[in-house]
Design a protein around this nucleic acid. Structure first.
Lengths: 167, 167
DNA sequence: GCCATTTGGTTGTTGCGACAACCATTGCAC
DNA sequence: GTGCAATGGTTGTCGCAACAACCAAATGGC
């Protein structure tokens, strides 16, 4: 009945428990800083950041969804809210009448620039500056390996290369 | 005005982007497997697992909250649902009338045992087996360092040592 | 012994994410 | 050019998490 489950040894368990705690706490930490300082979710910020780097600060919804590893449905809701707040605008794509383009407004652009420094500082404080340079390199490799399991399609995509802060 | 923000270099950015994707996708992967196979959230499962390891399968709400890195408010809601489903029962603590104890029911115990193998398999498939033994060790160190930034109080607590699967 | 504070916990509201249903456009078969 | 599937996107509903407000019991000062 119970087919041979390969349990975790102590070393593996130690790694997993700590990772589990990180994925529980880190999103909350990022969200709360951005929400407090910029009235933005981390995901909101990510969406704005991706648009800010795109040509003409514009992307098709589908492309934006890929960049942010989100479903179209989720993105649609988020962009709707951002549009209400005047940070983003949507307009139908001329080449494909099914498609919708999302463009960062001037106000949205300002918002990203305001929010970026605080966000980077938080990322530094909670992650990057906690690690040695070797660990940062190791982390890139580890996270990449995990991503190949979680999302084989996109793991090699350019999106993972491009999360720039606007400078 | 804009005080010197230390931006991320390419190596750091690569690590961060990948980590950001992981903390976005991994919780969803864990949740969906457990929800599908056991009608449980990952957090639900964690709560039950912690109780299953406690003496008499019983813990004070406050202690349980610490073990699961959750707020008392969140835990209260979750335990309420689990109680409705008959997996957990609550009763006032004899020694401190303010306090509430949560105890795993027999049904809850069975549920954990049923759910554990599938969960461990998922953890293996998406994380552990994607990494070399050296990377697993590195991951433990990295996650631990991050936890010390996110939650200095609890980073050294025994809880991080104890996420056993029931065997 | 009494009042203030702290501790332990619950509840109500609000907002976001997941999922499924749905509509419109496009591409393809023939 | 008609029929059908695939693509692109939106919307509605439901469940959960965050936050704040709240209540009860316990502790400490004096």
């Amino acid at each position: 009945m119970t087919v041979d489950t390969r349990w975790l040894d102590n070393q593996q368990k130690a790694a997993w428990v700590r990772l589990a705690a990180v994925i529980e706490l880190l999103p909350a930490a990022l969200d709360s800083q951005l929400r407090r300082d910029a009235q933005l979710t981390h995901f909101d910020y990510f969406v704005l950041a991706m648009l800010s780097e795109a040509p003409a600060r514009t992307l098709r919804m589908t492309a934006l969804a890929e960049h942010t590893t989100a479903t179209l449905a989720r993105l649609s809701h988020v962009v709707q809210r951002l549009e209400t707040r005047g940070l983003v605008e949507r307009f139908p794509c001329p080449e494909d009448k099914r498609a919708t383009n999302a463009r960062l407004t001037e106000e949205g652009w300002k918002k990203v620039q305001e929010a970026a420094p605080g966000h980077v500082t938080t990322v530094r404080e909670s992650v990057i500056d906690a690690l040695s340079p070797e660990q940062v390199e190791q982390l890139a490799g580890i996270a990449d390996a995990i991503l190949h399991r979680l999302d084989p399609e996109r793991a090699r995509a350019a999106v993972y290369e491009r999360y720039d802060e606007p400078g």
